[in-house]
């Protein structure tokens, strides 16, 4: 008999250095509580985190890779959004 599938969860950890939660991997668990416990037991064994999010994998909507051009390339030409686009005289110093 085939083994029934246990729901899949994505795990996000906020590390000690204060950065945002970051995707670290996934796991299988029957419900949210067990998923959170398992995330703690699997992904924070070496003091990696101070906060955990678990999200059902099927709750995530992802962008379509075939639309990469339409989605992301238009941003590449907008160089005026970056500080290096602007000239500030050297004598003004760091700005």
């Amino acid at each position: 008999m085939a083994t029934p599938n246990m729901p899949l969860w994505e795990v996000f950890i906020r590390s000690r250095n204060g950065l945002a939660h970051k995707h670290v991997g996934s796991l299988h668990a029957a419900d949210t509580t067990l998923a959170l416990q398992a995330a703690r037991d699997i992904y924070t064994r070496r003091g990696e985190g101070l906060s955990i999010w678990v999200v059902p994998s099927n709750a995530i909507t992802a962008s379509d890779p075939s639309e990469k051009g339409m989605m992301f390339e238009p941003a590449e030409s907008k160089i005026y959004r970056h500080p290096t686009f602007y000239d500030v005289p050297d004598e003004v110093g760091h700005m």
Binding site: M6, L27, H28, A29, L34, Q37, A38, D41, I42, R45
Partner: peptide, 11 residues
């Protein structure tokens, strides 16, 4: 019974 619990019991 499952890998996730193997991790927990060892912890």
């Amino acid at each position: 019974p499952m890998m996730e619990e193997d991790m927990a019991l060892a912890n």
